[in-house]
Write a protein that binds this DNA or RNA. Sequence first.
DNA 1: CTGTTAGCGCATTCAG
DNA 2: CTGAATGCGCTAACAG
Lengths: 335, 335
Amino acid sequence: MSTLGTVGIKEVAQRAGVSPGTVSNVLNRPERVAVATRARVQQAIRELGFVRNGSAATLRAGQSRAIGLVVLDVGNPFFVEVARGVEDVVSDRDHAVILCNSGESPGREARNLRVLAEQRVRGVLITPADEDLSMLEGLRDRGVAVVLVDHPATGDLCSVSVDDVAGGDLAVTHLLDRGAERLAYVTGPLGIRQCVERRKGARRALRNAGLPARALEDVVVPEMNAGGGALAAEKLLAGGVPDAIFCANDLLALGVLRALAQAGVRVPDDVALIGYDDIEFSSAAAVPLSSIRQPTYQLGKIATELLLEECDDPSGHAHQQIMFQPELVVRESSR
Amino acid sequence: MSTLGTVGIKEVAQRAGVSPGTVSNVLNRPERVAVATRARVQQAIRELGFVRNGSAATLRAGQSRAIGLVVLDVGNPFFVEVARGVEDVVSDRDHAVILCNSGESPGREARNLRVLAEQRVRGVLITPADEDLSMLEGLRDRGVAVVLVDHPATGDLCSVSVDDVAGGDLAVTHLLDRGAERLAYVTGPLGIRQCVERRKGARRALRNAGLPARALEDVVVPEMNAGGGALAAEKLLAGGVPDAIFCANDLLALGVLRALAQAGVRVPDDVALIGYDDIEFSSAAAVPLSSIRQPTYQLGKIATELLLEECDDPSGHAHQQIMFQPELVVRESSR
DNA sequence: CTGTTAGCGCATTCAG
DNA sequence: CTGAATGCGCTAACAG
């Protein structure tokens, strides 16, 4: 029944018979305080139910013990897996992660970034929603470390990504090997880099096979989730179903798969299908989904290590661009 | 290339030729400032790249414009959907959501709660990881509003939940109707209330059908995800597969389904299967999954409305316990 | 409508 | 190893 936060470091100090400075020390550098004193202070903290005021600490310190993680879609298992990687690294170092969702919208992304800046996070991990990185450079110039996730940087920023051109090539080469001649590429907004790069790879595969670019029809939908996939399938059904469909991620592919099934189109007999990301659900789908696998957890883990390294030593830090290679996983949907 | 946060409200004030108080007003109550002055200040803010220091604001105000959301598993689409409901309500009111993951672990939950308390959030939405709510009552006594999500409260707290006993009953009654005689209940840790309640409902269904409690075998696994499901399936395969399996959530069921398929056990011919939550993937599974549907998005939405109501008027607020009824969705896996 | 002022609670000097 | 003093940047209350 005690009333609000009347209990500050001062009350604790009084109760333990020490000065506020000493309490601060047991909170932040316990080793510098005599064992007996420390114990007394800790007991006072417990008895009073004292909770440190993070805002005051952050204000004083100039920065918080938190980093921001901005993803395109928290509902996408790909990003959940990335977040696991981030979390695992960060929790070892007693930092907090503020998870933000841009929903692929540059506007929401900007708002997220503003909140993170206001919170004075030490750094930001982000999968940008478009190619305009000026805001991120602004952040960096303000002293906030920035690492791009699943998006290669161009030199003045760290990044951890996967070769999306290679992935698109892998997927379409596979479909062509299987005999496809008329293909579709189901994708989210072409403002999203991954979507463009994967298409670039797809077209390269076409060229290498001696086929014209028009053998691959683009189907663009506004959101990269199952709903978007269903929408794409509708368009495809209306315009004539191709031999093979390459989807820019697995969520889209799952949506396509379901809508196709409802329309009586069989996968892979009538049309072959391949997704991207190899999320866990893909292998459990009605027709197990072929996909392009990426080292997702590693992406989060390594990005975070890079970020913390930059935070700890901003001057002596050299920006790195790390790029992984994706891998083809063939399952029933394109067998 | 400007150096760190040297630019505060003071510099902005100077540049705009007004006092710091006025800048604060355009930031927080723009309507109280003359249009011309406001414009001048906003321009100064833009030119200087000023970003309000949230810690200072929070420190001064005594509380932040944020609420905490603590879920059992961010990887579970059920909670992602809840979070969508929360987000939609909160963003209308210009608050931020700090999303935390307890991973079903009381220890992690406690740490999350400590961080939220340190951040001086206005309120906390939480699906508790166990029955010990003392920490939450502590928070509430400290002036932080608390609403339980997917967990009924007992009177001194708000809650929004779904009748899990009814859900368990629904699921098992359905399996019995279909002719099952030997059943299994695949569940996460029995410290989790939902798991216990759903079992209670399952047993009630058994009783109503005149069957003994031992007709339902418990299979407890440590995590309520696909991995846990696979583990459960292994145990089941070793001990003799029952007629029907009820899983405490869809992730478990999906894991069971896959493992069973690999072992050559057919669903629903050899064994019927039903999950819980009706996540989107369930209908797209290899065998579309029967499930118990809950008003997930509503859970998040209404919980947040309750929370904000309590924040805005702590004294004149009467705690409410809202309970929804679940719904049976029959698909291929138990047809 | 705008300016002035006094802390919010803590961490960090620098002495002792 | 401990204590006293100072101010981080901002908001709210009040004065003008």
